[in-house]
């Protein structure tokens, strides 16, 4: 079982987010980064599948030189080797640009399974995995909460809305986008961190596709609501609120 797992480097959840002077991207020159959270679950799922079925886990990340940090982290957690698709433009590239870069890096590997997180915490496209699958001619399933492999097929549990789920069977090779919470994450051990230093991170060039989506302006959303503050005794507040609800015909 040869598994590629795509991990994106994103700004740390704790990072203060500030728009750059041009108003087109965030200031990230001296920011803290981490592996996109859903991608961490995808990595963990890949490692578990390898433990059950044998094989190899290849971590793949697209972006500038700094993204080797998240590849090193993936190797420390147990990935066997890594591919860095290098191009500074990938940070702000649209979903098709990133998907093309990742897909062409993975294509020659001839993998059985590609796992990605369901979306990223920064751009939040939620489409890179699915676009990769189409590009590689693979079937796919999204927002996956369980993966079981047998007889050259994969049976997955898709999360639907409103508390519904659905089992779907797909032939291999296939691409799955993984939902956060599918498993319990492991963290890198000291032994893993030491071992990672000897593992390969192969650099490949990105396929040169131009973004068709441009951010004209990035900004802090304005508050659009007029808030009315209700004060007084509990009975006064209740009376005023119920009257307002009736006038607005929401009850």
């Amino acid at each position: 079982m040869k598994i590629a797992v795509c991990v994106k480097q994103v700004l740390s959840r704790e990072a203060t987010i500030r728009v750059n002077d041009q108003g087109t991207w965030v200031r990230d020159a001296d920011a803290q980064f981490e592996i996109n959270e859903p991608d961490q679950y995808a990595l963990e799922e890949a490692l578990r599948l390898k433990e059950q079925h044998g094989g190899e886990v290849i971590a793949v990340s697209a972006g500038p030189a700094r993204v080797t940090q998240v590849l090193r982290e993936a190797l420390a957690r147990g990935a066997d080797r890594a591919i860095h698709v290098g191009d500074d433009a990938l940070v702000e590239g649209d979903a098709f640009v990133v998907a093309a870069a990742l897909a062409e890096a993975i294509r020659p590997e001839g993998v059985d399974l590609i796992l990605t997180g369901l979306q990223s915490d920064d751009q939040g496209f939620g489409q890179v995995g699915v676009v990769m699958a189409e590009r590689l001619g693979m079937p796919h399933a999204t927002i996956i909460m369980d993966v079981s492999l047998a007889d050259g097929q994969v049976r997955v549990k898709r999360e639907l809305e409103g508390g519904w789920f659905q089992w779907v069977t797909l032939p291999l090779p296939t691409l799955l986008t993984i939902q956060s919470g599918i498993n319990q994450l492991r963290y890198a051990t000291l032994k893993g961190i030491m071992a990672a230093k000897k593992k390969e991170i192969r650099a490949v060039r990105a396929e040169g596709r131009a973004s068709e989506q441009r951010i004209a302006r990035l900004y802090v959303p304005e508050k659009s609501k007029q808030t009315r503050v209700l004060e007084g005794s509990a009975a006064e507040i209740a009376k005023e609120l119920v009257q307002a609800l009736r006038e607005a015909r929401v009850i």
Binding site: D121, Q213, R214, I215, Y219, V220
Partner: peptide, 14 residues
């Protein structure tokens, strides 16, 4: 929305 809705972006398509 971007960055988990902390920011919003106006996007143009070519």
């Amino acid at each position: 929305p971007m960055f988990q809705a902390k920011l919003a972006a106006d996007v143009l398509v070519d």
